[in-house]
Design a protein around this nucleic acid. Structure first.
Lengths: 156, 156
DNA sequence: TTACATGCAAACGGTTTGCAGGGGA
DNA sequence: TCCCCTGCAAACCGTTTGCATGTAA
């Protein structure tokens, strides 16, 4: 995985290539996106950027996010919690894990599903061009913190 | 797969078991949920129910949906199109396909991923209790209707 | 008869938009 | 300098809530 600064520079160059200007606010947003492993919401990105630029508007965050999304440089997730979440580190589809208790969102390594993308893309009748695999459950921290009663594989 | 009427009766009995009343509006909602293969939104369910009960309120649809969701009798999806979609025919997780052009949502048969649920549940470190696999692409109808340029496996 | 469901309207919260002023290139 | 970007506020829209009335059991 590339470093945070490498990814920021990559995004800067892609924006410049689209005749977009690199403002201090945008740079701060890019840095949050490139460094956040926990798939932040717009509100969370906004909160971090505000630390450096207190006058920042949430509309600016939305506009930059929208720009990057159109360019295919970040993945948008709707986990049904009311707000969307974003992965700006790795815009290529990969499995995610959402803890039912603390709601943290992490990348998930599933070795036996490593080639799921190729398998899906190879299907001839449906022309699959992208996917999202989201898994819900209990993260190690929450599992350790409390005995758990939920078992089996239920809805969503 | 069970018939529409069988599924409606099943839902009726589960609601009765929770001391819920079976009103004509609810019965109509159950019928739409049990018969819709295309994973309707609340607005779409509302439109169908209104055909039989013109005075129906959308709040009633939301309340019944919420009830069934809590009972685990339907799956809720957020595909990022602004509204949630529901599967009341089969509340057990299974892959879905969303057409990028006509936005239809269908169940997807992926034989080689038939045991994905078991594989995920068997993972010891993360206690996975549910999942959603959503695939985006071009449905046969849209593919036939127009030449397509999109290839590869891009973001979500 | 009575507790629950309905339907209306207002509230809510995340997202989008319009616009005047500011600043990157 | 020029055009894009910012920040504010209002609009937007799916969803939730409160409450008086209606109705299933």
């Amino acid at each position: 995985m590339k470093t945070v600064e490498t990814r920021v520079q990559e995004l800067v160059e892609k924006l410049r290539g689209q005749d977009c200007r690199i403002t201090p606010q945008r740079l701060a947003i890019l840095h949050v996106l490139a460094s956040s492993r926990l798939h932040p919401s717009v509100e969370q990105i906004f909160a971090k950027v505000k630390g450096d630029f207190p006058t920042t508007s949430i509309a600016t965050v939305y506009k930059t996010i929208s720009l990057l999304k159109e360019m295919g440089e970040l993945i948008e997730f709707s986990f049904g919690d009311g707000s969307n979440h974003y992965d700006g580190r790795d815009p290529f589809p990969h499995p995610h894990f959402i803890c039912r208790f603390c709601h943290r969102i992490e990348d998930l390594e599933i070795p036996e599903l490593k080639d799921i993308g190729a398998r899906l893309a190879a299907r001839s009748d449906y022309r699959i061009t992208g996917y999202q695999l989201n898994c819900w459950g209990i993260c190690p921290a929450c599992h350790a913190a409390a005995g758990q009663t939920e078992t089996g594989l239920g809805a969503g």
